[in-house]
Structure formats: structure tokens, C-alpha cells
Nucleic acid binder design. Structure first.
Lengths: 245, 245
DNA sequence: CGGGTAATTGACCCGGGTCAACAGCAGTGG
DNA sequence: CCACTGCTGTTGACCCGGGTCAATTACCCG
């Protein structure tokens, strides 16, 4: 079973089994480009994404839309709802999805009886929060070229960590409009910037697949530092003196 | 004792006392414009901000800097470190700060023996994550005018919830450079945009204080919807049908 | 009174947005 | 099997919101 939780915080085999048991009970299929959960909803399920790509997004009243995270197979969402009352954003399917749905009551019973899962979940949500901060930085400070390079590289690395990509190559389900909504750029400018990246030999993107020939090179363009992803394989922490700002 | 945790999730008096006990043990003073914690650090304390304004920020290697959150009196930070290993961002003082520092071991012992605090903390971090998503939306989609209006209104409301502001008036400690770093604009453009807001009668800002004469009007300009703040006084959730995207 | 930080202003410029048209394909129904 | 439709990607011409550069003017605060 694909479980991105396990890439952030190790989950013991018996705990994995407990999750898997619950996850096998009910499957939900969602068509591409439909909402799984809408802003304001109080869903009664915790979801595990089994197949397909989705996104978290927020919309402004006038239609402007910001994707705030991509969800890929193995990702868990809705685990915060029992705590946070209602959704403050929507979950949208990018491709067709296959989801495991776990009744929140059952899910809470499980985390209650297995503290290790609660702890892992806590780590998982903190890692997601860290990614969210990086996105704020990405959109606020990076140029279009850096920004797209960053999103592509981050997404590739998450896919690789999930075992869905290797050797710099991956299936790719995001349209240029999706990338535009995620980066705060227009689709037209995404198109042109992707061409710049292609021309520079930094990516090959097309035909539903992404190839990154030189991770280091793309990372340099993106000003990429993988620490914020909080993968278990991450580097050790360091110390630092007082510093003026 | 000011405790923003309590504005998000109610904390029982005995739990409040437990936190206060711990918080009274050690005070740390930090000078304005110095770092409290640097990116990569593994601090051994959980901090409660008692006095002054601070921010979370991330910096790019070339010096570009993004403020990803403002911290005001009553805010708690560092509670995630025991879980997340190392800091993926920095905490910087905007004004001089007075902080309570609680040894992480003591803090964890307290949350361990008082599950209600752990639950409240979980809600608190989720509310912060929600604000972070709103900031991503803010920077990605709103114009300079909307964006500044949004930041000003959000910050005012948080101050009000903390009891540090009332009747549309509040002390104000952010410079235009701070606002620029938080919104992804340049200081020059922040200056001009603030003047537009002033000219429109939407804000009075100067002399270390902010006044918002008409909350509704400013909210309309900012496309502001307070639900994402997850204040206890928030509205009830609603339902919504399947919707195409 | 002096020195440093924060706010303001003007002139000019550019990265990315806007508008519009078109091309390539995949699905779909006749 | 093919025409039709709609989504995705691409390109060109033009424009504007916000950035850059460079002074200058308040403010503190000691």
C-alpha cells in the first residue's frame, strides 16, 4: 500500500496494517475535474488517495483560483477535519481518482488506540505545513522561471519518494493551466517559461511525461533546498549563531 | 496570561494554569531585528510570545526574503520542533521581544499528562496552516491593493482577538519593508499602495497606529472571508453540491 | 545636534498579463 | 469512419502593474 505518511514518519508494520484494514473497506471514484470536497463542507471521511492526481485549492469570489498543494497517490487528506470543523479550502480532482474513504469515527478510534499513528500524522501535517510555507516563498519571491523549475522539481521528488518515478523520469498529469493556478502565473506565461526550460535542456515535458536530465542543474535554477520536504532521508540539522536581520 | 491558543481552541482553567506555571520559569529578551531561532536550528525551547511583534520568514540564498507569518503577543511557536527535528524557517524579532521559554522536555511532559492541551495544540497548528494557505492565495492571486488590505485586516483581527485592539484601532509595529516582505511587493510599491488605501479612506496608518474606520469596506476591497482564521466565534459550516472545476 | 532608520517622491523600465487567433488531439455520437 | 466539440498547447502583438534607481524628507533617540 502506498502511504506517503511513511515517507515522513516511519510507521510500524502493525500500524500500517491497521490503516490498510480501514482503507480497504470503502472505495470512492471521482471523475477528473470534479470536486472531492468543497470549501465549507464537513466531510465524514478521511481519504487516502490511491490513484490519480488531485489538488487543494482556494477560490476568490470572482473566480480567481489558487492551487495551494498537489496531492499524489499515497497522500492522506481530511484527517484534520474532525479537529478543524469545516474545510477552509476545496479538494479537486485533476485526473480521475480512486480513493479509500475511512469514516472519521473509525479513523479517530484507530489513532486513539494506536498513539504511534497519531504521532506520525502530526509529523505529516507539520511537513505539509512546511511545504506550504515554501510555496508562499516560491510565489512571493521567485521569478517565473525559478518558480516553475521549483514546482516541477518538488513534484518530481515527491513522486520519486512515493516510488512513482525514477531515474529523472515520471508520468505527468498537470496541464499548463494547473501549473498556472499553482504558481500565480497566467497559462500563456507558463507556456513560454516551460519552453525556456526546455530550450535550456533542463526539462523534457510532453506526452504525459516529465524528464529531468540533470537534477542539480534544475535545482540550481530553482534555488532549491530539499530540507523543507522533511523526508526521512533528509540531512542532519545544523547550528547557527545570532544573526542580524 | 495572553494565549492565542485559547482563541482557537478553548483551554480549561487548570490547563491554562499548567501552561502558565511552565511559562513563568524562564524569560528571554530579544532585541528588535534579531533572530530568535534560525533556519536549521534545533531549539530546546517552546516559546510563548509575551510582548512585541515577530515573524516567521524564509530566505533565499541570494538574500530575497519572504515573511510567511506574523507573530503577536499570545502566540506560541517551537511546539512543533520536538516532532519536526529542525527548523525549516527562521523566527525574527520585529520589535524588541519578551518571551517565555519552556524546555521542550517539560513541555512534552505537560502535553503528555494533559491530553486536552495536545488537542488544542493540534487545532492551533491546523489554524496556522489554514492561514498559511490563505497567504499563498493572497500573494498568488490578489492585486497589490487587495493584498495589502488583506494583510492589514487579518492582522488587525488577530490583534483584536488577542485583546490588543478594539474599535477599529490598534498599535502598529510593522514597517513598510516588513509589509513588502510579507506581500511579495517592493517597499516602494507598498508605500504607494498604502497611500491609495489612505486616500480611499479605508485606513489610517501612521504614528505607530492603525485605524480601520469601516471594516466591511476594507473587507470588500480585500475579498476577505474570516472563516479561514478558525476563531472560536466563527460561523457554522455549510453544505455544497458536486461542482465542476 | 548628529546619525541612522523609515517614509516618500519622481522618472523610467520590464516581467509578465491580456487579447486573439490557431493548431493538435481525444473523445463522442451519428 | 468521420465530422464535431472541447480541451490543451502555442504564438504574436500590445500593454500595464509593479519593479528599479536615485534622491529627498521626516523621524526618532541618544
Amino acid at each position: 500500500m502506498l502511504l506517503s505518511l511513511d515517507e515522513i514518519a516511519p510507521v510500524a508494520p502493525q500500524d500500517r496494517n491497521a490503516i490498510e484494514q480501514l482503507a480497504q473497506r470503502s472505495i470512492r471514484i471521482v471523475a477528473a475535474r470534479h470536486d472531492v470536497i468543497g470549501e465549507g463542507d464537513v466531510p465524514h471521511f478521511v481519504y487516502l488517495l490511491r490513484e490519480g492526481w488531485a489538488c487543494r485549492y482556494k477560490a476568490l469570489r470572482d473566480g480567481r483560483r489558487q492551487i495551494v498543494a498537489f496531492l499524489i497517490p499515497g497522500d492522506l487528506f481530511g484527517a484534520d477535519v474532525p479537529v478543524a470543523r469545516a474545510m477552509d479550502h476545496s479538494i479537486g480532482a485533476i485526473t480521475a481518482l480512486r480513493l479509500s474513504e475511512m469514516a472519521t469515527a473509525d479513523f479517530e478510534a484507530m489513532t486513539g488506540s494506536r498513539p504511534a499513528i497519531g504521532g506520525a500524522l502530526w509529523r505529516y501535517e507539520l511537513a505539509n505545513a512546511s511545504i506550504q510555507r515554501e510555496w508562499t516563498l516560491n510565489i512571493g519571491q521567485r521569478t517565473a522561471l525559478e518558480r516553475l523549475a521549483h514546482v516541477l522539481l518538488e513534484t518530481y521528488l515527491r513522486l520519486e519518494a512515493a516510488g512513482l518515478a525514477a531515474d529523472g523520469r515520471s508520468d505527468w498529469c498537470l496541464t499548463q493551466v494547473d501549473l498556472a493556478d499553482a504558481t500565480g502565473l497566467t497559462p500563456v506565461h507558463v507556456n513560454r517559461t516551460l519552453q525556456d526550460l526546455r530550450r535550456a535542456g533542463l526539462i523534457k515535458l510532453g506526452g504525459r511525461s516529465l524528464t529531468i536530465p540533470d537534477m542539480k542543474a534544475l535545482g540550481a535554477v530553482a534555488l532549491f533546498d530539499p530540507d523543507y520536504l522533511h523526508f526521512r532521508s533528509g540531512k542532519a540539522p545544523n547550528a547557527r549563531p545570532d544573526r542580524r536581520t
